[in-house]
Design a binder for these strands. Structure first.
Ligand SMILES: [Zn+2]
Ligand SMILES: [Zn+2]
Ligand SMILES: [Zn+2]
Ligand SMILES: [Zn+2]
Lengths: 134, 134
DNA sequence: CTTAATTTGTTATAATATAACGTTTGTTAT
DNA sequence: ATAACAAACGTTATATTATAACAAATTAAG
């Protein structure tokens, strides 16, 4: 019965729904305000749901923005390898799905021969729309 | 006189000294406690110095830890391209200096042909010491 | 010197995140 | 079904990280 498909709890489902409906990354307290009508009252309830959703790869945290976004990349092998493009002008964030890049980084060894189980990459630049408007 | 070598202000120099002496990344409020004997009293004085030091590439922010570390890589072309290895066990952080990696990422184009001026990459794993102790 | 720009000092407050504790719900094994 | 355990919940308080606003002092340039 309990396959790989995790069963989300009520709060986890509520928080995930909000994040999946959003056009861009959401901040924790903005999520909180959005879900108060659904019974979630305290920051901790949001943060607990976020923690679990990250753990199972349904969402990612954009570290440079302290914001959370739904995974668009088949749940990213449980959040172990993430890459994002972030527009410096309009703040648009897009998850990068690029097999060559992920293979390159997953196999990367530093000068001392160390390999890594997990990485997070954030690219910054101008998105196509903002570049045209310049 | 004012070449590329920026002249640091008093507070900037104090904060940079602390960060350069440290073995690992420092948090802003830990820096604050460390510099209070030198006349810096308020968080904002620290954050302002940090902002400038980042801007000129003397230090970097480790986003996943909200901590700050001195640049070990010829000031990283003014902080535009940074990569770190972070140990999940002992929290040791090391700046990665790897020409192939930085070239690969600086030249990376996503599927829509977009290129980026800036990136930050954080690798997570076990450092050599921690791996041996396992 | 004068003017503009940067840096500083200071107080207050905003924004992000976790500790601690007890209760409830869900799962598993008798 | 029911005892035992784990996961999730609710709640209050608090810790941690970061910025707003404003006035004074210092520095760089013309
Ligand atoms: Zn993903
Ligand atoms: Zn844009
Ligand atoms: Zn550097
Ligand atoms: Zn280690």
């Amino acid at each position: 019965m309990t396959q790989k498909q995790e069963q989300l709890s009520k709060n986890q489902q509520i928080v995930l729904n909000i994040i999946e409906k959003a056009k861009g990354p959401l901040k924790a307290y903005s999520i909180l305000y959005n879900v108060q009508k659904r019974g979630i009252k305290a920051p901790l309830q949001v943060y607990r749901a976020l923690e679990k959703l990250i753990e199972i790869g349904k969402i990612h945290k954009i570290e440079s923005k302290n914001a959370f976004i739904a995974c668009k990349n088949s749940d990213c092998e449980i959040s172990k390898a993430t890459a994002f493009s972030i527009c410096n002008n309009c703040e648009h964030v897009k998850e990068i799905k690029n097999t060559k890049l992920s293979k390159y980084l997953s196999n990367f060894e530093d000068n001392s021969g160390m390999k890594y189980k997990k990485y997070n990459l954030e690219f910054f630049g101008l998105c196509r729309d903002c570049k045209l408007k310049q």
